[in-house]
Design a protein around this nucleic acid. Structure first.
Length: 663
DNA sequence: GCGTGACAGGATTCC
DNA sequence: CCTGTCACGC
């Protein structure tokens, strides 16, 4: 179990005498260390799996880790092991301790669009810029565990002043809805543990050893939660890489990495610098690039692999040509090297960049999948369905009420809801409750009120059945009753509707199976749905080029990587240039570069559309920072990349390989 | 007055 | 892809 580890990895896996920080460079086998350590604790040290928790930042990472631990442990050994995201752990704590947190156990979890809506409501202002600024300020305060009272003292400018003024009203609204936002999932447990030591003790007893992945991405609240749970013994291992800290914008603070040393003077520091992923050419470029950042921990990646291929830098005329070129390069490279489509990844800064590449890949008949991006549960069609579940579970959830009563349309619109809302507001009750009160008739026209009540009765009946009948059956009936399939096909293009409907089918099937497996009814399932991942039914089974944002690519690796749109203004992003946060952008570039195993192609456009005008853009400063060992091509002078030439070359190659490449 | 669908234009990054 | 605006029908 430990024999496959190198000396520092083994040391990290076996060290249990106190708090431990593993500085794990990209591709240095950190997941292997965490999973081996869990196996070591269970198999060699007699610890019970149920007393160990491994915390990750993404569901994907949690799933992967669970899978890999499963392989190292036998039969029932892994039973009760906690492998989840910080937020999922938070949900568990708040749900179990709901009473202490002043919530009912069926509280709703709001996503960012719900939150924006509430902020807009309490602000009485729909201006997106204002709403975003307020939401951001409140979120940062929550991430730093700052209460509304304290926030007032921290006002720095107009926008934070407004945020501080609205913060109490925002919190009040959440409580009225019996709802929490994402930040609450961390902040509430922390406050709860502060105020109720006996609850903290319960959880310390349950989770006696913690392993934290991607520690550089923790925010203040998460770090505090870790400190609380780990207690004075400091029973934890944190694994992280300060060079891959790319989430400062959502409250993460690399300083938490350094703070460990002062907060735990006995902290054991272990560095993993041997890379098992990339060629030395790629590692050298990555090292050279990241040396431009100020750092506290020095780290230099090396590997036993050879130098490998040169890194290609390619200039494209514009974004269309860039996408076309990448598609062609993948096509021909795949023939030449008899590789799989899945060996290629296209990485970019922003989601919207994917579109052109999708188009071109389709043109070239290259299969692709977009990983990351929106989570399954953020998709409109899934949110439509879950809003019904949320409402059944929690009649105070006005946002779920509004979404479900208006999707599909049933003749109730903004005006009716506003009228009902103003009455509910006066009475300090939820919309659902308000609809059944006599007084509502004074605000809402009787015809509209009738349809609102009809809707509420429908929900009540459904809830009654949801408690008694199998989940899948109730869901099927719900979909039929609201005519959701027809709604999709009426409101979307055929292809889009088909894909959405198939997502809904997947969702129903998954929930039904889960209900049977866990013996839970629909409402019990709905409670956990918001944070569970059901992705990856078979994405590894299909051979397809991977498209991902740089953020979503963290933790992944690919034989051949195309890093696209590497221009000033894109990477580094313009807003980061404006706010002087270039270092994080450089780390983003670093993450991209270190995803590559064998070949790396970096491309940029010479011109890019922005609005109506076409502007000339500069290649990113980061390209120059990669050092030498780069091979420039493309552009006007070097190597013509006309479509005809490339297609001719491709045709020739295809003729040479009369047999299709192995898959 | 209210509810709905069509269309264009602008887009950081995500639990 | 999501939002804001506009025109249309009840």
């Amino acid at each position: 179990m430990l024999s496959k580890l190198n000396p520092p990895q083994r040391e990290a896996a076996m060290y249990l005498d106190g708090p431990c920080l593993v500085l794990a460079g990209a591709g240095s086998g950190k997941t292997r260390v965490i999973t081996s350590k869990i196996a070591y604790m269970v198999r060699e040290c007699g610890m019970e799996a149920r007393n160990i928790a491994a915390i990750t930042f993404t569901n994907k990472a949690a799933r992967e880790m669970e899978e890999r631990v499963g392989k190292l442990l036998e039969g029932g050994q892994a039973k009760g092991l906690t492998v989840c995201t910080f937020h999922a752990l938070g949900v568990r704590i708040v749900r179990q301790e709901a009473k202490l947190a002043g919530l009912k156990p069926q509280f709703s979890i709001l996503d960012s669009s719900d939150v924006m809506q509430i902020v807009a409501d309490v602000a009485g202002n729909k201006d997106k810029g204002v709403v975003k600024a307020v939401q951001w300020a409140i979120s940062s305060w929550k991430n730093a565990l700052i209460t509304p009272d304290e926030a007032v003292k921290l006002v720095t400018d107009e926008s934070t002043a407004l945020a501080a003024k609205l913060y109490p009203a925002y919190e009040k609204t959440l409580r009225a809805y019996q709802a929490v936002d994402f930040d609450d999932l961390i902040a509430l447990p922390v406050r709860l543990f502060d105020e109720h030591p006996e609850a903290l003790e319960r959880w310390q007893n349950r989770l006696r050893y913690l392993l934290i992945d991607e520690y550089q991405d923790t925010n203040g609240a998460q770090y505090k939660l870790l400190k609380q749970l780990a207690g004075v013994r400091g029973a934890f291992t944190a694994v992280g890489d300060d060079d891959q800290a790319i989430y400062a914008w959502r409250g993460a603070d690399v300083k938490n990495l350094y703070a460990l040393q002062t907060d735990y003077p006995k902290l054991k520091l272990i560095k993993l610098e041997q890379n098992y992923r990339s060629s030395n050419r790629i590692l050298n470029a990555a090292n050279t690039l990241i040396a431009n950042n100020d750092k506290l921990f020095e780290k230099k990646l090396w590997s036993e692999h050879g130098m490998g291929e040169a890194i290609h830098i390619v200039a494209a005329r514009d974004a269309e040509q860039e996408a076309e070129m990448v598609a062609m390069k993948i096509s021909s490279h795949r023939f030449e090297h008899r590789a799989n489509f899945a060996d290629y990844a296209i990485l970019y800064r922003g989601n919207h960049q994917a579109r052109l590449f999708e188009q071109q890949l389709r043109n070239h008949k290259i299969p692709y999948v977009i990983s990351g991006g929106q989570s399954f549960f953020d998709r409109a069609e899934i949110k439509d369905i879950t809003s019904y579940l949320r409402l059944m579970l929690n009649a105070d959830d006005d946002l779920a009420f509004i979404r479900s009563i208006t999707t599909p349309r049933r003749g109730i619109g903004a005006a009716t809801l506003e009228a009902l809302g103003s009455y509910a507001g006066q009475r300090h009750i939820g919309l659902f409750t308000a609809a059944f009160e006599e007084g509502a008739g004074e605000h809402v026209a009787s015809r509209q009120l009738e349809s609102v009540r009809e809707f509420c009765n429908f929900i009540n009946k459904l809830e009654y059945r949801a408690l008694r009948e199998p989940a899948a059956q109730v869901l099927e009936d719900l979909l039929r009753a609201i005519g959701y399939e027809a709604h999709l096909f009426e409101s979307c293009e055929l292809r889009e509707a088909e894909s959405k409907w198939s997502n809904v089918r997947d969702f129903v099937e998954w929930l039904g199976k889960k209900g049977e497996a866990d013996g839970k009814n629909l409402l019990e399932l709905a409670q956990t749905v918001a944070l569970i991942s059901m992705l990856n039914k078979g994405d590894e089974a299909t051979d397809a080029v991977q498209l991902a944002t740089l953020h979503a690519s963290k933790g992944l690796e690919f034989p051949h990587v195309f890093l696209v749109g590497v221009e000033e203004g894109m990477l580094p992003h313009q807003s980061s240039i404006d706010t002087d946060t270039i270092e994080e952008e450089r780390r983003l570039m670093y993450v991209g570069v270190t995803r590559a195993q064998r070949s790396l192609t970096i491309s940029y456009c010479e011109r890019r559309k922005s609005g109506k005008e076409i502007r000339t853009v500069e290649p990113s400063r980061f390209i120059a920072e990669l050092g030498d060992g780069l091979k420039h091509s493309g552009g006007k002078k070097a190597e013509p990349v006309s479509q005809e030439d490339a297609l001719a070359k491709l045709a020739k190659l295809q003729a040479m390989f009369s047999t299709p490449p192995k898959t």
